[in-house]
Amino acid sequence: MSHSSGLSVNAGVLSLVEDMRLRAAELRISVSQGPAGETLIDAGSTVPGSIEAGRLMTEICLGGLGTVDIGSSPYLTRWPFTLTVRSSNPVIACLGSQYAGWQLTSGEGENAYFSMGSGPARALAGREDLFRDIAYADKSEQATIVLEAASPPPEDLVRRIANDCDIAPENLTIVFAPTQSLAGSVQIVGRVVEVALHKAHELKFDLSRIVEGMGTAPLAPPHPDFITAMGRTNDAVIYGGRIMLHVTGPADEAKALAEKLPSSNSNDYGRPFADVFRQYEGDFYKIDPMLFSPAEVEVVSLESGETYRGGAVDPKLVDASFG
Rank of each mutant, 00 (worst) to 15 (best):
L257T: 01
D42N: 14
N163A: 13
K255W: 03
G107F: 07
I188M: 13
I70P: 12
G54A: 02
A11K: 15
S88C: 00
Y285I: 07
G241L: 05
V299C: 10
S50T: 06
T84E: 11
S15C: 09
C61K: 03
R160Q: 14
P262Y: 00
G305I: 03
N163Q: 14
G184S: 01
S30W: 00
I167P: 02
Q33A: 14
E26T: 13
V91I: 06
G37V: 06
A53M: 06
P272M: 10
R209M: 07
Q279E: 15
R160W: 05
F81D: 13
F114Y: 14
I161W: 06
G126I: 01
P222V: 04
G63I: 08
V195I: 12
T173V: 02
T216L: 00
S8M: 11
V68Y: 08
P250S: 10
V211D: 04
M290Y: 12
P315T: 07
V297T: 03
A93P: 00
V47D: 08
S263P: 01
D69G: 09
I145G: 04
C61W: 02
D133H: 15
G109K: 12
S4V: 10
P80E: 12
A229R: 04
G215K: 02
F277K: 11
G213P: 00
D166C: 12
E306P: 00
R232A: 06
D156F: 02
A254I: 09
A121C: 08
A125L: 03
K204D: 12
R23V: 07
R242K: 13
A320G: 07
M116E: 08
E59V: 01
W79I: 08
L182C: 03
A217F: 02
R28H: 11
S151H: 11
L147M: 07
Y285A: 13
L182V: 04
R232W: 06
L40S: 02
P221C: 02
Y136T: 03
H246F: 10
L95S: 05
S304L: 14
V193I: 14
P315N: 09
I243N: 03
D283P: 01
L203A: 10
V211S: 03
S304N: 11
A137S: 12
D288E: 10
A258H: 02
P315D: 10
L261K: 00
T67N: 14
G34H: 03
A112C: 08
L182Q: 09
K139I: 10
D283S: 11
S72P: 01
A162D: 06
L76A: 08
G190P: 03
R232V: 03
N111G: 09
Y113M: 04
V9K: 06
Y136P: 04
R159N: 10
G71S: 15
V158K: 04
A256R: 06
D156K: 11
Q187L: 01
L16R: 14
P80K: 10
V85I: 15
S293P: 01
T179E: 05
G44N: 13
A93S: 15
V158M: 09
Q33S: 14
Q103H: 11
V31K: 05
D164W: 08
A125M: 09
R242V: 07
A295R: 06
L257R: 00
